[in-house]
Every structure is written in C-alpha cells, then in structure tokens.
Amino acid sequence: MILEAKNITFQTKDGRKIVDSINLDVANKKSVGIIGMNGCGKTTLLKCLANLYEEATGDIHFLEKNIKEYSKKELAQKMAMMHQVNYFPFDFTVREIVEMGRYPFNEGKLNQSSEDVQYIESVMNLLQLNDKKQALFSTLSGGEKQRVLLARALAQTPELLILDEPTNHLDVYQQKLLLRLIKDLNITTLSVLHDLNLAYEFCDEIYMLKSGTVKYHGKTSDVMTEDTIKEVFNIDVALVTSPESKKKHIVIL
C-alpha cells in the first residue's frame, strides 16, 4: 500500500467531529475517489491524510513509514496536493508557478539544476503549456489554470497525488480532459470529486462518506449503486447503460 490510514479523527475545538474513525487505504497505481454531500468531511479528511492538521488523531503510514516521521520537505518530495482553492499574493507567470513544484528539492537555491529544468519542461510539455510559459496566471481560463496547478504538483514527482475537487468550476469538456490527463499519467491518486459520473468513470475504488464516516467502500462499480447513492446523497438515481459507449451513467430522477 502507498497509504494506510487507521481511525482518523478530526474534531473542532468545541468537540464536533468532522471526521470520525475513518480507515482508508490507497494501493499503488490506483485511482481512489472520495464522494459525499457537502460538509461530510471530504476535504478535511484529505488534509488529515496530507498531515496538514496536527490535531488530527489516528495512525497514517505513507510508503511504510509513519507520516509524522517525515519533515515537511521530505513529505513534499513524495506527496503532492492540488488544493480546491489557490491564492497567489502576486501574479506569477505560468512557468514560475510550475517551478514552485521543485522547491522541496532545491534547498531554496535560486538557480535550478539541470534535473529541475528537465522536470519542469517535461510536465509543461505534457500538459500543453509551452505556449503559455510567460503568461500571467490571472489571464488564463479556468481549464488552463487547473492544468498549471496540476503541472506544479507533477513537478514534485510525487508517488501520491492528492486532488481536492480538481474539476471545480470547469465545463464538461475541461472536466473530462483534465481527468483523462491524470488517468493517463498512471500514477497513484486520491481525489475528492463532486460529480458522480466523473467519479464513476475515473475511479478504481470509491469511499462514500456521510456525516464524517465511511458508509461504503470498494470497487467503484460494486459500491456506487442506486441504493447506496440514495442513502448517501438523499436523491433517487438510475444507472443507465449508453447504447453507444456501453458505459453506465448515473441519471438523477
């Protein structure tokens, strides 16, 4: 396993549990998704697993080592997180933002090594950003911004890529484009997704959360059923097979 988490719990100062005794595993090269209604603890769980909340309790092993034993730099060399909200105090260029992905490796040096340059050029080429190198981040479209943030994360050469609603604010075409790019990378991913059809199509395994706990977990096609979706999301759905693609789609009734 890349990541093994046992009894992960996070509560507010007033004692309200946002995440309650969650167990979660992520196997190598698997795409694992977390879904659930707004406020069920999805993003909080991701931040606990990325060791961003010191007050979280439980046991997390990442690459067979207790996550608390990693320094921030060591962890950033092996795990990257693409956040739902990104704020930059200055208007950086696309290349400058992608270069940030190499900060954990260059000891704060201003000059990039040949290895740094190689990784930066490689991910910018992969995500078709070469013609945007000097463009300011604020001038980009929503889809372009998400590709830049993904490129920054990939520049860290992570063994685990954590994604918090990576398709947020994107149109349908850009959503599928971004997730196909991620899927084709063939790396281990843990993602929070709000679109049920995207989760069904792109995730190998699913954790369905409700009120801070895991209600269902397993292979996506086994776990995401009409009954479980109704229980977790309080909506009636039908799983319909497309006559053209032969793929199943979730239709809200």
Rank of each mutant, 00 (worst) to 15 (best):
V240E: 10
R95M: 14
N186V: 01
V192G: 05
T225R: 12
S191A: 14
K230D: 15
D222S: 09
I229K: 05
D116A: 08
N130Y: 00
Q112C: 06
T57W: 00
I162H: 05
L253S: 13
K183H: 15
Y173C: 01
V223W: 08
V148E: 06
E55Y: 09
E69L: 11
L170W: 07
I206P: 11
E74K: 06
I206F: 08
D131R: 03
V192C: 12
I250F: 07
S31N: 13
L129T: 03
R147A: 03
E144Y: 02
E226W: 09
K132L: 15
V94F: 09
E74L: 06
V26W: 02
V98S: 06
Y103P: 06
K210S: 14
N168H: 11
G36I: 07
F10R: 00
N186S: 13
I229P: 12
K246I: 09
Q112M: 14
E231L: 06
I120F: 04
G36Y: 08
K30Y: 10
L193H: 01
V19D: 03
L196T: 00
T228M: 08
S141M: 07
Y119H: 13
K133S: 08
L181Y: 15
P104G: 03
A155C: 04
N125D: 15
L52W: 01
L52M: 11
L24T: 00
T139D: 15
T189Y: 11
N197G: 06
V85L: 12
S141V: 09
D20A: 08
M79F: 07
V19E: 12
F233E: 04
Q118S: 10
P166Q: 03
I18W: 08
K17A: 06
Y173M: 05
Q77A: 09
M81D: 07
Q11V: 04
G143S: 04
Q175D: 09
G101F: 08
K145Q: 15
C48N: 12
L45A: 11
D14N: 14
T220D: 07
V232W: 08
Q77L: 05
T139L: 10
D195N: 14
V223D: 07
P166T: 05
L45W: 03
Y173N: 07
E4I: 05
L140G: 02
T241V: 15
S221K: 15
Y103R: 04
L129K: 02
N111V: 14
N28S: 12
L178G: 01
P243N: 00
I187E: 05
L198T: 02
T213G: 13
L161N: 04
A199Y: 13
S191D: 08
K78T: 08
L239F: 13
I2E: 06
G101E: 07
E159M: 13
Y70V: 01
K30T: 05
N125A: 13
K78S: 12
N130H: 00
L45E: 07
T189H: 11
Q146N: 07
N86V: 01
A76Y: 12
M100P: 13
D171C: 01
P166Y: 04
H217E: 11
L193R: 02
L110E: 08
M1T: 11
V117P: 00
T220E: 10
K215Y: 11
